[in-house]
Design a protein around this nucleic acid. Sequence first.
DNA 1: GTCTATAATTGGATAGAC
DNA 2: GTCTATCCAATTATAGAC
Lengths: 214, 214
Amino acid sequence: MNLMQTTQPNRISDPQGKVGQILSAARELFLNAGYGNTSMDAVAKHAGVSKSTLYAHFENKEQLFGAVVGTVRQRLHDALTSVSTTDERDISKMLCQIGTQFMQHVTDPTSLTIFRVVIGELNTFPELGREMYQSGQIVIGGLMAEFFRQWTDAGLLAVDDPWLAARQFLALVKGDLQFRCLCDIEQHPTQPEIKRNIEAAVAMFLAYYGPKKS
Amino acid sequence: MNLMQTTQPNRISDPQGKVGQILSAARELFLNAGYGNTSMDAVAKHAGVSKSTLYAHFENKEQLFGAVVGTVRQRLHDALTSVSTTDERDISKMLCQIGTQFMQHVTDPTSLTIFRVVIGELNTFPELGREMYQSGQIVIGGLMAEFFRQWTDAGLLAVDDPWLAARQFLALVKGDLQFRCLCDIEQHPTQPEIKRNIEAAVAMFLAYYGPKKS
DNA sequence: GTCTATAATTGGATAGAC
DNA sequence: GTCTATCCAATTATAGAC
């Protein structure tokens, strides 16, 4: 699954070199038409190179697909680890900030598309699905759990199981919006819809994990 | 998308006739290998009929796929509309009962597989994804909303927006388990894991929507 | 490394006999 | 309705010249 240079003296990550063109074209085609409906011919034509060049850089179709998924997965990973909050005293505002950033990435069209393709091809590429999930849910879940632990130490929350609380918070924030997006390509959630979900989630979360009780 | 008899005098739903064999074989192959990786040759061979017979009953590959998805979707629809609870005074127990039944269908391997295939082929068959989603989330959401409305009238709950409460409850019960199943074919949730999720969900839900407050 | 041309296979769909 | 045999287009992957 190593996509870039192996032993060749090629400059690393040459963005507009042939490899970059191929990856870019492959990403667009794979994400729009799926794995099975995308031909290597089409990738070569779309990238403006010949099939020989294509096969000179990538062993076969499977490896090319893995490389494309790898780049998109990395982007999702980076986006989610950058989720943060300004240091406020108002725990409610902080939770809303984080929820908003999270939903932005979760409902991002590119993220959704890659999840669709990977999920659909899960039988052929089981490990890609696992990697995508880990770059998504696990990364953001761990981040939230750490936040909750710190805020509990600071007396802002009363969370006993940070991982459980993190999963509950994220589940509430998402509601069924991510799943709906995944199933219905046209029903993109509106901003008010997302905002309402987040506010309801924060209210419910604080009613249970807020500092006043327990 | 009408799969069974149109004008032919064939007995309706002949379970072990050629049509039944074809649908059964097609279901197994489509769900295991996906749409693009399943050939009509394979379907015919697996069903023990010739390709001519196959094409005598189904116009083309797309229509066959639609018919298969239709049968599975119907099963999911029926399963979810049958979710119910014994009439107790203990609201907590009733919620746990419903949550358990819901999770049983949500984590059912066949349901998961059909969702994977449909999601992966969403660009080719947009309406199938919408139908699946409606047979799943919308059906169970409406059912729950109605429960919550009745229980609020009876003084067991204090729910102002039944649809929102229903989505929140279902989101909490699922957590990230459905999404995890969808992405990772091997990580099937254990019963204790599911049970713990449900109990935590009910506790949190009742802390907010329970009758004592408000 | 890159191209043109092509090999080798497989796909969906049909013709015609019974 | 059902079968055998086949057509034709498209696909992945490679050979050989430059």
